[in-house]
């Protein structure tokens, strides 16, 4: 490939072609580890259920907790019946508040209102709050 009979520009064009191929390969060898290094890690707890003390949810009150990395809430409207919801307002992503006196969720950002079941009662939210599965196991509540 470095045949001296060939003129420098000809050799050069050939070398540059080879080099760009190798440079591409090298770039891939750099970018792939970088991509993997920065990719979100599949946390071991991603698919796990969240276990709460039953006593932490007062009757008529709400308990906010972390569910797979996002805010969630569980309420007890009637004794022994629990409802778990995502606490993220479907309008613009603020976290809703529980208003015990009105028995409803209120979003402080744009006054969205939701029922304890997550249905939209008023304001701009386009969709109800997503509901999470709840199981009661003795004095514990399993969510997810």
């Amino acid at each position: 490939m470095s045949d001296p009979s060939k003129s420098p520009p000809k050799r050069r064009a050939f070398l540059v072609t080879l080099l760009s191929g190798l440079a591409g390969l090298f770039a891939a060898a750099v970018l792939y580890p970088l991509w993997r290094f920065l990719s979100p890690r599949k946390g071991t707890g991603e698919q796990e259920k969240v276990r709460l003390e039953r006593a932490s949810v007062p009757l008529g009150g709400a308990h906010f907790f972390n569910f797979r990395g996002g805010p969630a809430v569980v309420v007890q409207p009637q004794a022994g019946s629990f409802i778990a919801l995502s606490a993220v307002c479907t309008h613009l992503g603020c976290v809703v508040k529980w208003q015990e006196e009105n028995d409803e969720f209120f979003c402080p950002c744009h006054a969205g209102r939701f029922s304890p079941r997550g249905e939209v009662l008023g304001g701009p939210p386009p969709q109800p709050l997503p509901e999470l599965n709840v199981e009661v196991e003795g004095d514990q509540i399993l969510i997810g």
Binding site: S2, P9, L22, F26, A29
Partner: peptide, 24 residues
């Protein structure tokens, strides 16, 4: 091994490329 081979090849090609300029 792969990375070293690729980089080594790049290095050799660059030396050859430099030679084309040197000749000129």
């Amino acid at each position: 091994g792969g990375v070293v081979v690729v980089l080594g090849a790049i290095c050799i090609l660059l030396v050859l490329l430099r030679k084309t300029y040197k000749d000129e």
